[in-house]
Nucleic acid binder design. Structure first.
Lengths: 294, 294
DNA sequence: CGAAACCGTTAAGCTGAACTGATGCTCGAC
DNA sequence: GTCGAGCATCAGTTCAGCTTAACGGTTTCG
């Protein structure tokens, strides 16, 4: 019988591409991963990996096997969820991954609600880079994660993960002067010569800001890299530049800041391992999150 | 993550009812099975087994988990089948279980055909009691098995197994005198006072004969217990009694034996682990069997 | 073009999970 | 009551699988 632990390694390899990365993700040494994958190949009787240069790639048989692994792991996740539901009292730890804005804007009241409805549940929050969310969910280091996607920056679908929508909010352009023009492009274009305040390079928010400006026909002249939207708005208020902020980050804008609603939106979703959607802790947390965003 | 090896033990427990039987089926000691199931329960966090007297029974949570185990094992079987198909050359051992009549009547030409179409395949035949077929298929000791069911003795469906029809043949009443009457009941009733030759108690064929007579309104007076249909017909020919034989066992009846066709039938099917239907060796063997029964 | 960094594999040694065998307990049958 | 069947527990042992260390090949960079 095929070993599911080994299939899990193969699946992770499909996502990451190198044995070293798989090892790091699942906290093994590359040696262990290599040995286990070799054992899987022996057991399978077919080549699953192709050694190309100093890297490895999956053969067609390997890709096909990953699909089966995906299905098996999903079903095991379902089984675990059902067991947790049968348990009744719903205690234990839920590990939550979230991007900074969500941690600040959504999680406090969501966790308060969760503590009221399920006092036995023990939530652990981890502020985690959006790019790291998917691997850490798959690896089981996180149970639930808040992720967002912008127009211009669609999230790529992950076969191992599932998600439900949580929030769909408009983006605002923050300036100190009323913005001009009709439509997003015109509104943004009015700021083409202003200094911009955007998020740290490498983040989704950074990509979003740059792409939005490019779609309007210009490249933003970046002055500051700031991730916290409250700080961003404070900077805008003192004339340090203009910025794009989501509604969630635009509560209580400082005096003097003008917020111009755009048609582009940011969607926040709750992601979890496929099959875990029925887990009572996941259900409870999603309900708490929904109540927190009204 | 739930351990699939342990889930397999739980599934087997669902079929067999006692830990000792599971241990015997999978060639462990009862101690090992007990320890592993205890570990599974610990891992699940819910009671899966209920100690009732000196036996164990599955709790509802246990039953639910077995369903998931069933699905996972099926998918793993599919994966193995696909790997075997990807392998191409189709070599290795196929373990075939068969009841005696089939071994004699079907398998020789089927194996000859298989040797022609797939010389690399190495079939191993095991004459096995029909009651043992399902457990041994599940345990992986057999890959394919020939099973039959009669009217009056329907096979109970097994969630872990799948089967395709192979043969649907009429039953015959073997006598030395032309049988009288219209319909099965009348035909059988004409022999109510004759001595009967039936199969060994405990076999399906035995149950079939007794039930058929009971359905006709009488209990057969059994004189001989003989399993081989050729021998049975020889005994009928010398006046030792009457018997019910399937068409497959009634080829070349001895001089003096009258065969009266009945409307009751025997269906032979090819069984295999659910998910293994796509395994090239299974596909090849089924094709060979079909060619052997014309 | 050489060096360094990176990646994957292999060999050797060690740890812990899991199996066996022995023992004890409980329940049910005779 | 006694015996046997069945499950749990404990101690001992074995082996799969991990880590560490060392090696060979490939890519990149100075």
């Amino acid at each position: 019988m095929l070993d599911v632990r080994r299939l899990r390694l193969l699946r992770e390899l499909a996502y990451r591409g190198t044995i070293a990365a798989v090892a790091e993700a699942l906290t093994f040494t590359p040696s262990a991963v290599s040995q286990q994958l070799a054992a899987l190949e022996r057991e399978a009787g077919v080549a699953l990996l192709e050694r190309t240069g100093r890297r490895v790639a999956l053969t067609p048989a390997g890709v096909a096997l990953v699909r089966h692994a995906e299905a098996v792991l999903e079903r095991l996740e379902q089984a675990a969820a059902e067991l947790a539901a049968a348990k009744g009292d719903l205690s234990g730890t839920v590990r939550i991954g979230a991007f900074p804005t969500a941690t600040r804007a959504i999680l406090p009241s969501a966790l308060a609600a969760l503590a009221r409805t399920h006092p036995g549940l023990d939530p652990m929050v981890d502020e985690v880079d959006p790019a790291e969310v998917a691997p850490r969910l798959r690896a089981g280091e996180l149970d639930v994660a808040l992720v967002h996607e912008y127009d211009f920056v669609p999230a790529e679908p992950d076969l191992a993960l599932d998600a439900v929508p949580l929030l769909d909010e408009p983006m605002y352009l923050a300036t100190i002067r009323p913005g001009g023009g009709e439509g997003d492009a015109a509104t943004l274009l009015a700021c083409r010569d202003a200094p911009w305040i955007v998020s740290t390079p490498g983040t989704l928010c950074h990509v979003m800001a740059v792409r939005a400006c490019q779609a309007a026909g210009f490249s933003p002249r970046v002055r500051h890299h700031i991730d916290d939207f409250a700080t961003v708005l404070a900077m805008v208020a003192v004339g340090q530049g203009v910025a794009l902020v989501p509604e969630l980050g635009a509560a209580d804008p400082p005096e003097g800041v003008t917020l111009t609603a755009l048609s582009m939106r940011r969607r926040t979703r709750v992601a979890f391992r496929r099959g875990a959607g029925g887990h009572p802790a996941v259900v409870a947390l999603i309900a708490a999150l929904r109540s927190a965003v009204r």
